[in-house]
Design a protein around this nucleic acid. Structure first.
Lengths: 227, 227
DNA sequence: TGACATTAGTCTCAACCTGAGACTTATTCG
DNA sequence: CGAATAAGTCTCAGGTTGAGACTAATGTCA
């Protein structure tokens, strides 16, 4: 079991160590969740984000990708650093300094000790991991409008309603259907596969795939109203 | 001399150490610059960003503020983490892992070993510091439209042309005067002091100060055109 | 079978925002 | 005085946005 290979380094925490912790985000049923490992048993049951220590000379990004792959099975299409944490809070490996990474993944059924944990109920995560999830979600929300990470949440083929739901789940607010589609149209990001999916009730939906086309970068003036 | 107090920790680099490095950004004459310390002498002359090591139990943010204060004389009004770097590149203290912070400051005349270094000529900075400056500037550019950091570049009283220049310098592109002022007006960020400054030629300019007023947060739809 | 609920997808419109150029005002310089 | 220079203002066409109303295709159930 891949998840056990790093156990030796985990069971010997020492002062002054550095950890890499990864927040793997996915969404399902209009809820965001993160991949967490169940630790302890019965009454002592707790959870932990996937983490590890960088090998000597290993780049942080590489270590993060490795840790994500171990937990999820494959390397995420997008992964980004979300900050360094050393605030004296509890870390499962006793690390004093932790570098947090965030990735976005399609939802799958995880194996063995791994679970999708709703981002509402983080109480059973160590304090530092809770802060990391907060930071990670904020990075994802910002990146959502700058990089095509929403497509990483969905399977290769999806309906526009599913895509809109992904955006709504991440942003935590409803979007107007017509406006969303208009923006999508103008962005040349998707193309129809030609197939349709009838999901029980209602009109069948056209299936789309992510297929970005070259576009002119729209440089606009300053937006002081966001400030 | 404050800059020397941490010398002892600097002269004893060891493997596996962590450093905090701070990119202190300012602008002058339409050019961005960062505060750097001159190291070595004559032909061996090089430069280094202010850096240090966190004290045991010290929070990263606190350490960064301390290091910035040592280099600049006072703590910056805004300072933010810009990422962790451990890519095997050269660091003046031999740190394997460096956490980078960025702050924005009004230009002053620095003391003793400190210089304002133009962001164009970074060749004499260690490789890792060069990467940090790149990352820091990108953070500043993003934050500029989300937080009132531009005002940290200016003295307490300034003209609108100076403010616009600050924005242009950071963003690296010209802005339209009328549009900039209209956006500023709508944002309720500044108020006139009532005084005027005549700088030689041309009509005297009204002086303003930063005085933000409560405003409704303008939540807008998704902007897929930036992606 | 036919009304109805449900979901997908489209159209239109008023209000607002943006970029740009042209204009007015106040000052120094020669 | 008039030209040069910089500050500050006005207006307008065109684009973008939010919102509601509309059509379309399917399953459900009486």
């Amino acid at each position: 079991m891949g998840a056990r290979t790093a156990s030796s380094s985990r069971t010997a925490p020492s002062a002054g160590t550095v950890s890499i912790d990864v927040v793997l985000v996915s969404c399902h049923e209009r809820r965001l969740s993160v991949l967490a490992e169940a630790t302890g048993a019965a009454k002592r049951r707790g959870f932990s984000l996937p983490w590890g220590t960088p090998a000597k000379g290993e780049h942080l990004d590489a270590a993060a990708a490795r840790i994500a792959r171990r937990a999820f099975g494959l390397a995420p299409a997008w992964i980004e650093q979300a900050g360094a944490f050393a605030d004296g809070t509890e870390h499962p490996g006793g690390a004093t300094l932790s570098v947090c990474y965030v990735a976005v993944l399609p939802r799958g059924e995880p194996m063995a000790p791994w679970w999708w944990m709703g981002t509402h109920a983080l109480t059973r995560l160590p304090e530092r991991h809770r802060r990391m999830v907060t930071a990670a979600l904020s990075v994802v929300r910002v990146r959502l409008e700058q990089a095509p990470i929403a497509f990483n949440l969905l399977p290769r083929e999806f309906t526009l309603s599913e895509l809109q739901q992904a955006y709504e789940t991440v942003l935590g607010r409803r979007l107007h259907k017509a406006s969303f589609r208009r923006a999508l149209q103008a962005a040349f990001l998707v193309e129809p596969t030609g197939e349709w999916r009838g999901a029980g009730r209602g009109r069948p939906a056209q299936l789309y795939r992510y297929a970005p086309r070259r576009r002119k970068g729209a440089r606009r003036g300053v937006r002081l109203d966001l400030l």
